[in-house]
Design a protein around this nucleic acid. Sequence first.
DNA 1: CGTTAATTTGACGGGAATCAAGGGGAGTGG
DNA 2: CCACTCCCCTTGATTCCCGTCAAATTAACG
Lengths: 232, 232
Amino acid sequence: MLLQTATTIRNQHVKGPVAAGPENFLFAGCPELIGARLSYRRDEEIYGEAEEAEFVYKVVSGAVRTYKVLNDGRRQIGAFHLPGDLFGFESSTTHKLTAEAVTETVVLVFKRRTLEYFATRNVEVARQLWTLTACSLDQAMERLLLLGRKTAAEKVATFLLEMDQRMHPTGAISLPMTRRDIADYLGLTLETVSRTISQLQAEGMVALSSARQITVQRRSKLRELGSEDVYQ
Amino acid sequence: MLLQTATTIRNQHVKGPVAAGPENFLFAGCPELIGARLSYRRDEEIYGEAEEAEFVYKVVSGAVRTYKVLNDGRRQIGAFHLPGDLFGFESSTTHKLTAEAVTETVVLVFKRRTLEYFATRNVEVARQLWTLTACSLDQAMERLLLLGRKTAAEKVATFLLEMDQRMHPTGAISLPMTRRDIADYLGLTLETVSRTISQLQAEGMVALSSARQITVQRRSKLRELGSEDVYQ
DNA sequence: CGTTAATTTGACGGGAATCAAGGGGAGTGG
DNA sequence: CCACTCCCCTTGATTCCCGTCAAATTAACG
């Protein structure tokens, strides 16, 4: 990874879409903070659990999964990070999850210490970093409700709506992850995910042009099925 | 605990244990920040989901649960807050969960805006507030793994170990919450929680002097059963 | 075009939920 | 002081959703 840093530091041009979000304003007024560009192949590890958290990452293109595993291999994906998303930002000095590229992925890397230095000098930056963490916490709370109390159908419906909103505000969803990834994100098995999607398709709520290309057909019906939190 | 420092300024006797943690140093150097003392009866609401987040709270004695509910009443408890814990601290202007007293509870209340004012003036306070949120996020990630991938026995074992650590580093655990609360925390039913605790008792891992008074007998065995995250 | 991975679908089983009933402890009022 | 009541907890019987095991189909890739 250090080798990679060396090679990619030269080509500074950033390609790919950068989603809107609070993180876009994060580095406002900090032109010194230029990240190095790094590429990862499919399934390549970006950082490991318990590793020192030296860098903070921003997805340029592709997708990243962060996860935890139990001793016997059971895996829980904490989050999928899509273009524009920041990840790897910890309060602790070590990472609490492992990060891997879901597909061919390009990220920008920032030195954590540099970021923290700016935070100590600029109150606004400090506030934005905190807001970022707090937003992740809100999302985590929503996921606790999903994992603890929703049925398989509700989980999948919620997932598809989330992806629909995050990837293409309109149009087909182009999923970068496998059914197994989705299963490990929702606390299900890949077979249950597959079966549930098939059923949603049979009921006309979604349409599949391929396994990874899904279009939401009846958003309101899907939303109803997703049984969101009462206040939301 | 600054909070506690604040209380002890005029009221020297603070009852109840105050857990150690990063929040204890939160308000160092801000003696102006004195919280009002409030009491809540069992099951009384402290704040509601979607309500404006005007205050931040610190548990003095008793216990608080924060939770979300689905439209049909299914409930997921996000966290239990014990003496010494801070809660209700949001990045958003509104609360994302409901907070209720589990038992007779006393809290200290602080104006959120005052806290934020100190954060803008003191970098160290800002950092501690961020650390607090980040720690909650780490705990949430651990709970995602539990809810998504652990069995009933593993969930209950993990819960008992957590409570044992948080309540009395040694000695019997005195649970303030019902079996239903535990179930809604672990994504189970109250019957399954009851059955599982009975089984742990039969296997000699824990001993019950009453339903709410539990002693861990074989911590290593229980920890093994809890199947913690590989790196932890 | 062959090889391998990903996905789908079916059959079956099991772990936890649901339904139901019985005990026990704390508080209350007679 | 004791009976009564209301929860809370425990335990049993049964159901069912989802996991497991298995196989076929499709897609991806060199």
